[in-house]
C-alpha cells in the first residue's frame, strides 16, 4: 500500500466519522429523517420552531398526522407565507411526503411549531420529537438546539 493511499484512506475514515456524527438520521420503513434542529429561545418563551428533512424512498406517498415532544404542550406543523410585505403563518397539517421525494423544512417556510414550551430551549440542548407517519408508523428523532437566529443545522 502506498503512502498516498493510506492518507486518502485516513481522510475518508475521518470524513465518514464526521458525517455520521453530524447527520443524526432516523429511519422508519421507507422514511429517513435527517437534520432535525431547533432554535434557542429566551428562558420564558412559550413558542419555538423545529426544522427537519424527511425523505421518502418508497413508491407510496406518506403523511404526518401528528407530532409530539415532551418539551411542549402542543406541536403543530406550520407554514409561513409571504404575501407582498405581509408575513402570515397558518397550520399545515397533515404534512405530505411525496414518494421518491422529500419534505424540506426551513426558516420562512414549513416548520414545526412548539407551543406552550415548558421552559425555554437552550443552545446545545437536545430533545426528542416523536413523528407519527400515517403509513410508516412512529419514529423518535433527536432535535439539536442551535443559535436563536440559526438558519440551518449547525
Amino acid at each position: 500500500m502506498s503512502k498516498h493511499s493510506v492518507i486518502v484512506g485516513a481522510i475518508t475514515l475521518v470524513f465518514a466519522f464526521v458525517v455520521s456524527v453530524h447527520a443524526k438520521t432516523a429511519r422508519v420503513g421507507d422514511i429517513v429523517i435527517e437534520q432535525a434542529w431547533a432554535r434557542a429561545t429566551t428562558p420564558s418563551a412559550k413558542t419555538g420552531a423545529t426544522y427537519l428533512v424527511v425523505r421518502n424512498s418508497g413508491s407510496e406517498p406518506d403523511s404526518i398526522p401528528s407530532l409530539e415532544t415532551p418539551v411542549a404542550s402542543h406541536t403543530v406543523a406550520h407554514q409561513t407565507r409571504q404575501e407582498g410585505s405581509v408575513s402570515r403563518m397558518s397550520e399545515a397539517s397533515p404534512l405530505n411526503v411525496p414518494p421518491g421525494g422529500a419534505l424540506e423544512m426551513k426558516p420562512g417556510g414549513t416548520h414545526i411549531m412548539l407551543m406552550d414550551l415548558k421552559s425555554g430551549l437552550k443552545l446545545g440542548q437536545q430533545f426528542p420529537l416523536t413523528i407519527t407517519f400515517e403509513k410508516a408508523g412512529k419514529v423518535e428523532v433527536p432535535v439539536k438546539v442551535g443559535k436563536p437566529g440559526a438558519l440551518g443545522p449547525e
Binding site: 413558542t47 409561513t80 426558516p107 420562512g108 416548520h111 443559535k147 436563536p148 437566529g149 438558519l151
Partner: peptide, 17 residues
C-alpha cells in the same frame, strides 16, 4: 412579536449580522 418563532428570529438575526 416574540411569540413568532420562524420569521422574527430570521429577521432579527439578519439585523444582528
Amino acid at each position: 412579536f416574540t411569540h413568532c418563532p420562524d420569521v422574527c428570529p430570521t429577521s432579527l438575526s439578519y439585523v444582528a449580522n
